[in-house]
C-alpha cells in the first residue's frame, strides 16, 4: 500500500502543481473555460442545425442523436482533458523535454501523460454531460440493471478509447514531425464521426471509424442497444455490449505505436 502511494506521489505532485498554475491566471482561465464551453456548444449546434432541416437522419431523431452526441462528446472531453496534451509531443521533442523524461525514474509514457492536465476541458465536458443527462431523461429508455450496466460500460470504454487515440497519435508523432495533421484527421475526425449516426456511413467509413478506430463503439452502438433500435448493416445492436473489447483493441494499438515510436526515437531499430 505504502509502496503504491510512493509510486503515485510524483505524478500527483506534478498534476497538482499543473492545476494550480492553470488557475492562477484567473482571467485567462475564465476565457479558456468559456471558449472550451463554446466548442462543445457549437458542436452541438452543428448537429442541431442538420436535424432542424429534417425529421430523421440515419434512423435517428434529434432526441435520439442527442444521446449519441452527449455520450461521445462527454467521453471525448474527458479523454482530451487527461490525454490531450500528448498532442504536444513534437513540441516536447524539440524543447528537449522528452530527454529530460529519460533522466527520471518513471516510465516515459506515464510521465508524458501526467505532465499536464487541461482543466479548461471541464466546461466542454459539462456540455456533453448536460446533453447526455437531458437525453437520458427525454428518451424512451427501458431502465433496468442491464441498461445501467450498458451505459456504465459505454462511458468507461468511451473515455478509454478516446484516450487511446491520443496515445496512438503521440506514438506516430515520432515519425511524423510536422505531419501532426495526419493523426489529427483520425483523432479529431474520430470525435466528429463518433457523434454521427453511423448508419449514414459508407462501407469504407464503417471499416475505418466503425472498427479500426472503434468510434462507433463509444456512443452509437451502445445507444442503439440502449434504445432497442435495429443496427445497420455491419453494425448490429449487440455490438453495443462490446465496447470494452473495442477499448482493449484501441489501447493495444496505442501502446504498440507508442513503443514503436519510442524505439525510433532512441534509434534502436524499428
Amino acid at each position: 500500500m505504502a509502496e503504491t502511494r510512493g509510486a503515485i506521489a510524483p505524478y500527483r505532485a506534478i498534476l497538482a502543481s499543473r492545476m494550480r498554475a492553470q488557475r492562477s491566471y484567473r482571467s485567462n482561465f475564465r476565457i479558456d473555460l468559456t471558449s472550451s464551453f463554446l466548442v462543445g456548444f457549437v458542436e452541438l449546434a452543428e448537429v442541431w442545425v442538420l436535424f432542424h432541416n429534417v425529421h430523421e437522419l440515419g434512423g435517428f431523431t434529434f432526441t435520439q442523436i442527442l444521446l449519441v452526441f452527449g455520450l461521445a462528446d462527454f467521453c471525448f472531453s474527458i479523454g482530451d482533458m487527461l490525454f490531450g496534451h500528448c498532442d504536444e509531443l513534437t513540441k516536447y521533442v524539440r524543447a528537449g523535454t522528452l530527454d529530460v523524461f529519460y533522466l527520471r525514474p518513471q516510465p516515459i509514457l506515464l510521465q508524458l501523460i501526467t505532465s499536464d492536465i487541461s482543466l479548461k476541458r471541464l466546461s466542454r465536458a459539462a456540455v456533453g454531460l448536460t446533453a447526455l443527462v437531458i437525453a437520458l431523461v427525454i428518451n424512451d429508455i427501458a431502465w433496468s440493471p442491464s441498461a445501467v450496466l450498458l451505459l456504465s460500460l459505454a462511458l468507461v470504454s468511451g473515455i478509454a478509447i478516446f484516450s487511446a487515440m491520443f496515445v496512438w497519435a503521440a506514438g506516430l508523432q515520432f515519425f511524423l514531425i510536422n505531419g501532426a495533421e495526419m493523426t489529427n484527421a483520425f483523432v479529431y475526425g474520430g470525435r466528429y464521426a463518433a457523434t454521427q449516426p453511423a448508419a449514414v456511413w459508407s462501407r469504407p467509413l464503417k471499416v475505418v471509424f466503425g472498427f479500426f478506430f472503434p468510434m462507433a463503439f463509444t456512443a452509437y452502438l451502445p445507444v442503439i442497444a440502449l434504445l432497442g433500435l435495429p443496427g445497420p448493416a455491419w453494425l448490429p445492436a449487440w455490438l453495443g455490449w462490446c465496447s470494452p473489447v473495442a477499448a482493449l483493441w484501441a489501447w493495444g494499438m496505442a501502446l504498440l505505436c507508442w513503443r514503436w515510436g519510442l524505439r525510433h526515437y532512441q534509434g534502436g531499430g524499428g
Binding site: 510512493g6 510524483p10 502543481s17 527520471r104 525514474p105
Partner: peptide, 8 residues
Amino acid sequence: RILASIHR
C-alpha cells in the same frame, strides 16, 4: 519539491 517526490 516535485523532483524530490519523483526521486522518492
